[in-house]
Amino acid sequence: MNINDFKSNDEITWCPGCGDFGILGALKKSLVTLDKQPKDILLVSGIGQAAKLPHYIKANCFNGLHGRALPPAVAAKITNHNLAVIVTTGDGDCYGEGGNHFIHNIRRNVDITVIVHNNQVYGLTKGQASPTTDFGFKTKVQVNGVIAEAMRPLELAIALGCGFVARGYSANLEHLSWLISEGIKHKGFSLIDVLQPCVTFNKKNTYEWYAKRVYKLEDSYNPADKMAAYQKAAEWGDKIPIGIIYRQESQTYEDKSGVNKIAPLADADITDIDIREALKEFM
C-alpha cells in the first residue's frame, strides 16, 4: 500500500494550520506502514472537527452522533472482527458528551484504537470550554475563566485498566504515526490522546506554547510500571511528556466472549435457524 491508496476526494473543511492535518497525515502513514487495505478498515467518529477525519481517508466510515462514536465502534468490531476499527474523536465528543461510553468501553476492552484530537476547546461551536480546558481559560461562555478542574483522561484511563495509554503531539507527525501504529497493533482498547493546537479558538495552547513544553519519554521509561505511569500521565505544565505512557496487554472482549474463535457474526447464515430444540424448553 502507498499513501495514495488512502486518498479521499472529499473536500477538507478544517481551518488552514489546524492540528488535525497532522493527525490525518500520521494516521495515513500508519495505515501504509501496517499494510492495511481500505476495505478492512472502519473509521468511526461522532461529531466535531475530529469527527470529519474519516471522510478524508479512503476507508469504511461510520460518522454517527455527537458523543456516540464508541458504542457503534465496539459493536462493529464484535460482530465483524475482520475490520480494524479506529475511532477519531475529540475532547468534547469523547470526554464530555460521550464520557459514560469512554469509561465503560475501557472496561469492555474491545480491540479498537481511539484517537482523541484534544485541542482543549470546542471548535465547531466556536470556542466554548471543553472538559480538558485549563483552569482560568476565558471564553464567550466562561467569561470569568473556567472554574472547573480540567479532566485528566490519561490518569482516568490508567485507573480503569486501559491497556494502552499514549499521548501524541500533532506537530510531531513521525512520532504520532508510530504511536498510532503501536495502538493499532495493541490487542484491546488503545487510547491515544493527541495534543492538537486549535489555531482559531485556542490562543493559549498554541504551537509555540507546546514547542516549549513537549518532550518525548526517555528510552529508559518503563510503560509497564503502573505507578510511574500515573505520575507521567499527571505531568502537565512546564513539561508535557509524549509517548506510550502505559502498556499492559490483557484479554480482550473478543477473547473472553469467544467471538474471535468463530467466523464473524456478520457472516453467519441466518436464513434457516433451527429453533426446535429451544422450543422444547417451553413444552
Binding site: 456516540r68 458504542p71 465496539v74 459493536a75
Partner: peptide, 10 residues
Amino acid sequence: NMIIGASFAG
C-alpha cells in the same frame, strides 16, 4: 448506538 453499529457491520 451499539445495535446500529452491529447492524452496519452486517
